[in-house]
Design a protein around this nucleic acid. Structure first.
Length: 269
DNA sequence: GCGACAG
DNA sequence: ATCTTGTCGC
């Protein structure tokens, strides 16, 4: 699993991370209680195919804020090479997400998101550098890590104490901090949806404070998973579903499909 | 051998 | 991540 650029970036960021640089709000809208000035929030996700461990769909969506309407959608089939290893998710998924962001900047620069919600963790990570930090450094976009399960690191565990703390979250919006054995607050547990007892694990990715990260995720939740990530997830799954149906629909050769074939030939030439 | 395991 | 429809409940 050789990934020189990512690994270099990973190592280069250690000093900045220890200095807490990536945990600071750098944008004006982040300091505003109502996020005035925030107009576009991005979400990224990869969906996989059941038996196939090399094909996936990478998606990037941009939603308006605060209306949360989809302004931009990009789904693309990609060839995944790195295997999934807990703690090394970024090496598997980040290259395709960086490509998607670059495509957006090139094709629709005005729709560039002001912050990105990322499936997975940021500082809440074995080396304090999860996929949300990774993507943040490579794109220089403010990033927030949103995980649906707790990554057990620095003494954190899904033990009875943890489950009890989760039960103590009564209403959506309630939180409690995740403090590692080291004494450092690595993230926040957020009950994002009244109808789900399962919380979200929010952590700093890049250029955002933990407080701002939690407030923003909370304000993007219509259901348990915040809309930007939920839309990216829904759309990438749908894209794959159509991908799998395509070869079946291409079977029957109808008379009028002759025109289509000719058009394809011309476009290829 | 046993447990842990973001997506 | 993925396998998976309807169904019980607020």
């Amino acid at each position: 699993m050789a990934a020189p650029p990512e690994r270099r970036c990973w190592e280069r960021e250690q000093a900045r991370l220890k200095a807490g640089v990536v945990e600071q709000d750098t944008e004006e809208w982040q300091k505003d209680p109502n996020f005035t000035g925030l107009e576009r929030v991005g979400g990224v996700d990869l969906s996989y195919i059941k038996g196939d461990d090399t094909s996936a769909c990478a998606s990037l969506v941009v939603l308006s804020y605060p209306a949360l309407q989809v302004l931009y959608e990009d789904c693309r089939m990609v060839a995944v090479t790195a295997p999934y290893v807990a703690g090394f998710l970024a090496f598997r998924e980040v290259p395709f997400l960086v490509e998607a962001v670059q495509r957006l900047q090139q094709e629709e620069p005005k729709l560039r998101p002001q912050v990105l919600l990322v499936d997975g963790n940021g500082l809440l990570h074995h080396r304090g550098f999860g996929v949300a930090c990774h993507l943040g450094v490579l794109t220089d976009l403010p990033c927030i890590g949103v995980a649906k399960n707790l990554l057990q690191v620095d003494g954190l565990a899904r033990d009875e104490l943890h489950r009890e703390q989760i039960r103590s979250l009564q209403r959506s919006g309630d939180t409690f901090p995740l403090t590692g054995t080291s004494g450092r607050v690595l993230g926040m547990v957020l009950r994002s949806y009244n109808n789900s007892s399962k919380p979200l694990y929010i952590s700093v990715g890049h250029r955002v404070s933990l407080d701002t990260a939690v407030r923003l995720v909370r304000s993007c939740c219509r259901y348990r998973v915040p809309e930007p990530i939920r839309q990216a997830d829904i759309r990438s799954r749908e894209y794959i579903r159509k991908q799998l149906c395509a070869p079946l629909e291409a079977r029957p050769a109808r008379p009028e499909s002759k025109k289509e074939a000719e058009l394809e030939d011309e476009s290829d030439a």
